[in-house]
Write a protein that binds this DNA or RNA. Structure first.
Length: 371
DNA sequence: TATACGTGGCT
DNA sequence: TAGCCAAGTAT
């Protein structure tokens, strides 16, 4: 049980919702409460900032205006619409869920948290957000904003990085949430959490709910939320091959699981896997790649390291250092001999690539232009 | 439960 | 600048 009295709870709701009515952000997915609009925006907003999402959301609604259109979309089209947004399993789960709705539910949306969580990619937060915003259910939607805001308001010091902490906050919000306007309540908390009560540069002294903010009143806001630190990304060193033949370049399709699943990328070799002896030089490793690519003498591949800095790309858990290798083939080589897919440069714009692949292509073109 | 999963912004 | 943060979920 929280310390707030029923009077305090009512006063908080009123203050928060009045502020929201006057100052809520005008966002494209707030024009109505259509569950499709709410759902797509919530999936895009997972771990992604509002300003990043807006243009993606607007394009997405033009391309796929309805659940049916999304269910019918071909995967390449879908991934192109998601290109650059990251966490690409979100897009695949989105379509999986669209097909669930169309096929399994005959177009009828589940309206409860439990029902919504049956949809692929919809977890406790997103289910709460859709249920409250689209279906007016008085349920919590605990995201990073809610963790931050309520941890400060009530000086809750449970570690928000731990999964079990979610239920502590759900219990709190279940008691405080407005039963009349649950969707607006949850969205108001998010607006508060990105403005007066943001992670950095918060401005609690001007916050509409400062008198309810115990951590502020006690001068200890900087202690909330309590969150254990993340681990640093692990470094991996790769070679990436740029194998040119006429106007085509060789691509590999990545495995169907793991990071950047299913994307087409330049063939990549983990340098660590190429090492046989500690004393192996970079030249020796490159030569081993040449051997792997030229298993028959009739098609020797010659590789040259490009006069370019390695491409460095950091993910949440990995940091890639990629050395680009340009490959040359004998004239009239049989391209079908190589494992992978030859793609016309002219067609690059129609294919979805992850950011690191676009970086490699840019670095390659820059290096070639210099020569 | 702890970890993997992308990208961009900010200090 | 290296690290943290941003409307989390799946496994």
């Amino acid at each position: 049980m929280i310390e707030w009295s029923q009077e305090t709870i009512t006063a908080f709701q009123k203050t928060l919702l009045n502020w929201y009515d006057q100052h809520k952000r005008d966002l494209p997915w707030r024009k109505d409460h259509d569950p499709y609009h709410v759902w797509v925006s919530e999936i895009m907003l997972q771990q992604t900032q509002v300003q990043t999402v807006i243009p993606y959301y607007l394009r997405f609604m033009k391309e796929f205006p309805t659940v049916q259109a999304l269910a019918d979309a071909d995967e390449a089209h879908l991934m192109k619409a998601w290109e650059g947004l990251g966490y690409y399993s979100r897009a695949r789960n989105l379509q999986k869920a669209a097909r669930q709705i169309v096929t399994d539910y005959h177009g009828q949306w589940p309206t409860t948290v439990k029902g919504l969580q049956e949809l692929s990619g919809v977890g406790p937060y997103t289910a709460g957000a859709i249920a409250s915003i689209a279906f007016n259910q008085p349920v919590a939607a605990i995201d990073g904003n809610a963790f931050r805001v309520f941890s400060r308001l009530l000086e809750i010091d449970d570690d928000v990085a731990k999964p079990q902490t979610r239920k502590v906050f759900e219990n709190v919000v279940d008691q405080i949430i407005s039963k009349d306007r649950p969707g607006d309540f949850n969205q108001a908390i998010m607006d508060l959490g990105t403005s007066y009560m943001s992670a950095a540069n918060y401005d609690s002294s001007h916050s509409p709910v400062k008198e309810f903010n115990q951590a502020y009143l006690d001068g200890i806001e900087d202690q909330f939320p309590v969150k254990t630190k993340k681990k640093r990304p692990v470094r991996h060193d790769f070679f990436a091959l740029v194998l040119h033949a006429d106007n085509q370049i060789l691509f590999d399709k990545r495995p169907s699981t793991g990071i950047l699943a299913n994307f087409l990328m330049f063939p990549m070799f983990d340098q660590h896997d190429l090492i046989k002896d500690k004393s192996d030089s970079q030249e020796v490793l490159i030569h081993r790649v040449e051997e792997q690519m030229s298993t028959e003498d009739r098609l020797p591949v010659h590789l040259h390291q490009l006069p370019a800095k390695p491409v460095i790309h950091t993910f949440t858990h990995q940091q890639w250092h990629i050395t680009l290798l340009r490959g040359s083939l004998p004239a009239d080589s049989d391209l079908s001999y190589f494992p992978g897919k030859w793609i016309q440069i002219d067609h690059f714009n129609d294919i979805a690539f992850p950011k690191v692949q676009l970086k490699m292509w840019q670095a390659y073109q820059k290096a070639i232009a210099k020569k």
